[in-house]
């Protein structure tokens, strides 16, 4: 049970993100939903890379030469940076949308049909 705790947290985070995306009408909360969803996926990748008693792949001061392959960490770093860019871009869209529409409600939209 306790070993699976990180995976349960991943599922909870992704569900929360999807909940915000589906039911929150405030655009900023939608962006928060995307970020929470992204954090869930990141946590999943990190959790994949965990090995009990593993040694970080830093060659200086390493006690043994059998080390953990740092691929999931590298993937997570990339994904965090991309998530940051996405969130920053979307927040700047929201600022401009507020200037034009005077509202950040997702139901106030002009494109439909």
């Amino acid at each position: 049970m306790l070993n699976n705790l990180p995976f349960i947290v991943v599922v909870i985070l992704m569900a929360l993100g999807l909940y915000a995306l589906l039911f929150k009408r405030n655009l900023i909360k939608i962006v928060m939903g995307i970020h929470v969803l992204g954090s869930g996926v990141d946590l999943f990748l990190i959790e994949l890379g965990y090995r009990t008693g593993g040694i970080a792949p830093i060659f200086t001061m390493a006690p043994r030469l059998e080390m953990v392959l740092p691929t999931p960490q590298a993937l997570t770093l990339t994904s965090i940076v991309i998530n940051l860019a996405v969130v920053a871009l979307m927040l700047s869209f929201i600022i401009l949308i507020y200037q034009h529409y005077g509202s950040i409600d997702s139901k106030k939209r002009r494109l439909k049909g």
Binding site: L21, L22, F23, R25, I30, S106, K107, R109, K112, G113
Partner: peptide, 16 residues
């Protein structure tokens, strides 16, 4: 036409 609401939450709902 009523399905094409243009609300972003609905787009996500269709995807899910």
């Amino acid at each position: 036409v009523a399905l094409h609401t243009g609300i972003v939450n609905d787009y996500v709902a269709w995807f899910v």
